[in-house]
Structure formats: C-alpha cells, structure tokens
C-alpha cells in the first residue's frame, strides 16, 4: 500500500495556499507535515482525506488516482480533524459503537482499552474534559481500523502521559504495516518519521 502525491496545488477563495507539493508514503512510514500557521497543513490533509478538491495535482493510492475510485480509497483511511466528531448526548462507547456499525467494523472494546477510556466509557460526552473527548475521538482509529491515518493536530488537549500513549499506538500501527500522515506543531519525538516542511516548499517555490 502506498500514497503518492504529485504537483499538488491548493487555492482557496482565490488565495494560493500551497503549490507543487510532492510526497509519498508507504506501509510502515510516518510523515510529519510541518509549517507555520496558515502554511496549508490542514488544507493538505483535507485534500488527502478527500474532503477538499485540489486546484491541480494528482493523489494516487496504490497507483490509482483517488478521483477515479474515491470510495475504495476512503475505505482505507481514517481522518482525525480539528473537530471531535462526537455526539455529546451519547457516551464515548455509544459514539464508537455508531462509527463501528457505520463503517462495518467491530473493535470498540479494544479501542476503549487502548486509549484507557474504560472508566469513562459510559459517561455522556458532554461532561468529559477536552482531553477525554480527544481520546474518545482518537479511539475511532482503533475501533474502525484502516491502514492510512491522516491526523490533524492529534495531540492537542492531551497531557504528556496520553501523548506518550498515543505515540506508542501510532508506532504500533506503522509497525503492523499501517502508515500515518500527521500535522502537529508539537515534536512527538518520532525517530522514524520523515518530515515535510510546507515552509520549505514556499521558499523553493517562491
């Protein structure tokens, strides 16, 4: 499994966000997307998640343009964005159960255990802290397994213990043949991660 991006350009409301971005990602790899605020990290990740159309460029999954088979591509990815995608009237378990049923997977118990959510699994999400909500959202990655993780600021609101926990889960995922692409301002100390600095792209592209 591999993800390739060629000459990707993003324009939003007549503003050039980035241009000529190239990247590739294979099983067992982590790519850390860096850049200043407004450099286009979230836009790049949203394009790769299929939520935003690029102005030009090609995103291909296993050699196939994702525009041609978007459903097959999106079955292979999980995206964690800035919003938690949690229903506050539901508990963390009910939220995960829904996503599990919706995606046709069944790994909720393991997800709750992996993110140490068992004790708060049956509390309504509206009473959880920001960090607990973030973990409940990230647990979707385990509850609904997919090889490609696209993560936008995945550790915001997490304390250091849970950042380490998340880092371990991320490394376990890529060791098991998965791949991850994450944008974060925080250095997670991922030794094996390759870097893509969108600031460099601007310097090269002018």
């Amino acid at each position: 499994m591999s993800l390739h991006v060629q000459s990707l350009t993003c324009i939003r409301q007549d503003r050039l966000i980035f241009k000529s971005v190239e990247l590739s990602l294979s099983s067992g790899e982590i790519l850390w997307v860096k850049g200043r605020n407004g450099a286009g990290k979230s836009s790049l990740l949203r394009i790769l998640a299929g939520l935003l159309k690029p102005a030009s460029g090609i995103v291909s999954w296993d050699g196939t343009d994702v525009e041609q088979e978007p459903e097959q591509y999106q079955q292979n990815l999980r995206y964690v964005g800035h919003q938690d995608a949690l229903k506050t009237a539901y508990t963390a378990r009910e939220n995960l159960n829904f996503w599990s049923q919706y995606t046709g997977t069944n790994n909720v118990a393991a997800a709750l255990e992996a993110f140490q959510l068992q004790t708060i699994a049956d509390h309504p999400v509206r009473i959880l802290s920001a960090g607990q909500k973030k973990r409940s959202n990230l647990a979707r990655l385990i509850a609904c397994p997919a090889p490609l993780w696209i993560l936008d600021e995945p550790v915001s609101s997490l304390d250091t213990d849970y950042i380490d926990l998340f880092k371990n889960l991320l490394e376990t995922h890529v060791k098991a043949g998965g791949m991850a692409l994450l944008a974060t301002h925080q250095d997670l100390g991922l030794q094996s991660a390759r870097h893509l600095d969108l600031n460099d792209i601007w310097q090269v592209a002018g």
Partner: peptide, 15 residues
C-alpha cells in the same frame, strides 16, 4: 456539520 460528524460520514462507506 458543526461537530465534524458530517465530514466523517462523507468519508464512510455510504454514498
């Protein structure tokens, strides 16, 4: 839309 569920739904298996 506001809590981010919509974009997750769009990436799911349902057209």
């Amino acid at each position: 839309y506001e809590d981010g569920t919509l974009e997750q739904l769009l990436m799911g298996p349902l057209p």
